[in-house]
Structure formats: C-alpha cells, structure tokens
Write a protein that binds this DNA or RNA. Structure first.
Lengths: 259, 259
DNA sequence: ACCTGAACACCGTTCAAGT
DNA sequence: ACCTGAACACCGTTCAAGT
C-alpha cells in the first residue's frame, strides 16, 4: 500500500463517439479538469465516501472505477483486494479519534479516550461490519491500543491483570458501540417489526414476566433487546456511561469479586 | 416464513441425458431416495450448515440450490431474501442458549445466562456479522431479552435504571463475544501481521510507553489490541469474566459513581 | 399451488495488450 | 511502469412457462 511518487497532469483521453453531459457549473469554454493521477490515498478516500454514503455493501470496485475514472486494474495495482481496502477505510476513520494528553490522571484519560472512540464509531457506523470480520493491525489501531495500555499502567495494572482489564475495556467500548448503531431500516419493515415486538410483550404471562411488564415503557422504548429494536429507538444515551462506570470502577477497586 | 403443510414423497424427475455418478454406498438396485418436499425449516438448516462451514460469505443461494436440489425460485417462495435467511439462521443459533431457572438468585442467574450466551456465540462465530448488521426481532432474541430483564428485576432494578443496566450488560456480553472471535486468517497473512505488530512494539519510545514494554509479553500474546491480533492469539479466557464481574458488581452496588 | 429453466443486472478479480 | 478493455467465473433475484 505504498503511495507512488507520481504527480502528473495529463488528461485522460476520451473517445469522440460518446457525448459528455454539458457542464453548467463552469464557463462554456472551460476544459475538463486534468485528473490527478491515481494515488492510494485517493482510492481510500473515495472508498470511504462510498461506504459512508451507503454502507459496506454500497462499495463496489465497479463504482470506484466510475468515481475515480480509471479501470479496475489501476485500482488493483495499489490495494490487493477489496478487504484490504475496507481495512484502510477503517484505519482512516479510527485515526481521527483524539487521544488524551499523557499528563491527565488515568481515570479522566480513560473516560476521554472511551468517549472519543465511542464517538468515532457512532459517526461511522458503516465500518462496524469491517471491525468484526477482519483482524486489524494498522497504525491507527496500534496507536489507540498503546495509549489505552499506558493509561491502565498509570492506574497501577501490569502483566496479565492489565491484559484482562484491557480486553474487558476494549470489548465493552467497541462491542457496545458496534451493537448500539445499526444501519437504518426501511420504514415499512421497521413498523412491521415494531408491531411484532409490541404484540410479543403484550402476550407475555404476567406472572412469569412481571418486571418486563412493570418497566414496559422503558423496555419497549430504550433497550436494545437483543438488538431487537436498536434500529428503531437506539439506546438511551446514558447506557454507554452506565457500563463504562462499571468497568472503570472495577479498575479502581480491583481484585477478584462477584463470582 | 410460515412452514407449508406439504408432506409428499414423489421423487424429482430427472432427464435421461445426464448420467448420474454411481453410488457405492448403497446396493446397485437401490433407487435414489425420494426427496422430502422443500420446507422452510430445511432451507434454514441447510443455510446454517453452509454458514457454519465457511462463514457468512460462503452462503450463496446458488449453493443452496445445489445442496437442496431445487431451483432458486423454490427457495424465494419461502424466504423473501438472503438477509432474512441469515436472520433465521441466527435465530436458530440463539434459540439453543439455555436459560437459567427462574428460582435461581439473580446474580447466579445472570452469570449463567451471560456464560450461555457467550458460549453460543463462541460456537457460532459466523453469525456475528449478521448480529451487527441486522435488527433482530425473533422468538429467540425476545426470549433471551425477557429472561435477562426479569433477572434484573429480581435484582431490584426498574424503569430507566433497568434499561441502562440491560443495555450495558447486553452491550458487554454481545460486544465482547463478537469482538473476541474472528474468522481464521490465512497463515501467511497471519505471520506477516504478527511481524508487523512485533516491529511496532519494538520501535516504541521507552519513555513514552513504559507500560506497554513492561507488560510486553501479555500485551503481545493475549490482548485484543484494537482487534489487532485477536485472530492470532485470541483473548485470555479470564478477560470475559473480568468485565462481567465489573457489570454485575455495578448492578449489586448501584447508584451513580466513577464519573 | 408449486416448481423449473433461463434470463437480468450485477459482482470481484485477472490477463493480454497497449503506451 | 502504468494503464485500458475485455474477459472469466461468479453473484441475488425475477419471470415466463410448465405441471
């Protein structure tokens, strides 16, 4: 994925047989802008734009060809395959998360880092399917991991205990964020599902499920279900902080418990 | 997705032009077994088998045609589209998680339910991509959610507090489980990535990243990174329990904290 | 009513050929 | 060295036609 040192300005030649659409956003005498030669960066940015607009399945090499104005082989000369392109897009998104300064107390820093990560993933839900079907070893992920591990070190953890805490923390932050934001559903599907859920809850045996019925409004309006209506209502804003508090408390007051 | 009441035994007729391969696992005089007519259940099971064997992308309608010995239209008459088929497969997997008895104390029950869910997802990593790209409202997910909410109710939670705790819990359990198990990687890619990670850590500034280097072995062998080597080493077995302890402790000693 | 065979409109990736 | 155009081997889904 090295970026070639090619910087050129020759325009791509076009056949005369096809009539291009007339541009009205520039004077009639304007020549088409010379296309900058293909660089990996441009490919990744274009891919990001497509994924951002329409989700993972909206990215096709064929569309990239059209957007970039090049053939498929020109793309494959830089990126290997579509999966690696998706990983590059994810790296781009994660590189935008801001790290807390090293001088900050560990618990403030962990709060800030968690919220930054949560925010980045919330802004870019389209990369979630990539996060959980690819192993990511990129500059952006390594940078985030090292930052988090240093924070845990400042909290006094080390060795395997640090490993468990790190995994528990990243599992929660990434996992919750991924689970929280689902791609938008078609409206009619959404309504049908909502009716199904309401009917399900209304048909429950009041003796067997008193708590579900007692907290009916909260259950139907704000909880994930097992993802069952995240796409409809989303989670309560406070839920992410609820679990994060649990994790950070456990780091502060550590030692085996609960089991 | 209703199952048709069709039960019949007529064999599918085949043209005489194509010579079928000779079966040696049955006597020479054996006639081909009459194919049971297509039922939705059979489609879902066949789809499950394909997904289980080769992951999400290994399921194609074309393969299903071949496995089931029917045309595509026969399948589309029962399942609508491929996404719904994948949802049905996930429902099948989740329906196998065993629920704790209602008489069990809330914290034991929550441990047991969490581990059952974690186990089911660990056994069937192929459904993870489905879990985070589809809204699931199915009998199995509703059953699990209602069970968990009742447990939280027994712990004394209700209303929005119950909602937050439920979301935090399910976010952790599902999220961690999804993040933990990645599809296997090709060996050479794996080795290349491992070398990259080691080189990255070895090049770190010792003053800026003392904790990463002090816990080097643990960091390289057992932590998720940001998924960076989960596919290589997996998480420490204890990490799931570490975070679950955090969540359950928070439920037991509730009230706002940490922030 | 239920299925088949063939088609439609796409994919990701590769390969010979051009400059 | 870098690109084009065309091909290869697939997809999910639909539709007329059969029984």
């Amino acid at each position: 994925m090295a970026v070639g040192p090619d910087e050129d300005t020759r325009a791509r030649s076009g056949g005369d047989e096809v009539e291009a659409p007339v541009r009205t956003d520039a004077p009639w005498f304007a020549r088409p802008e010379p296309k900058p030669l293909l660089r990996t960066e441009r490919i990744v940015e274009a891919a990001h734009a497509l994924v951002h607009a329409g989700g993972r399945d909206a990215l096709s090499i064929r569309d990239l060809e059209r957007v970039l104005g090049v053939g498929a082989s020109a793309i494959y000369r830089r990126v290997g395959n579509k999966d690696q392109l998706l990983i590059a897009v994810t790296d781009l998104v994660l590189s935008q998360a801001e790290l807390p300064p090293q001088t900050m107390p560990w618990n403030d820093a962990l709060w800030q880092l968690s919220l930054a990560l949560h925010h980045a993933l919330k802004e870019h839900p389209h990369v979630h399917p990539i996060l959980d079907s690819h192993v990511l070893a990129t500059p952006a992920t390594a940078r985030l991991a090292c930052c988090a591990i240093e924070i845990l070190g400042r909290a006094g953890l080390k060795g395997d205990e640090l490993g468990d805490a790190y995994n528990g923390w990243i599992g929660y932050v990434l996992g919750f964020s991924i689970i929280e934001n689902l791609p938008a559903q078609p409206v009619d599907e959404r309504d049908e599902m909502r009716r199904w859920i309401h009917a399900y809850v209304d048909r429950l045996d009041a003796d067997a499920f008193p708590s579900v019925l007692a907290s009916r409004a909260s259950v139907l309006n704000t909880t994930f279900g097992l993802r069952w209506d995240a796409g409809i209502f989303g989670a309560r804003g406070g839920s992410f902080r609820w679990g994060l508090t649990a994790v950070i408390d456990r780091i502060a007051n550590r030692g085996p418990r609960a089991g």
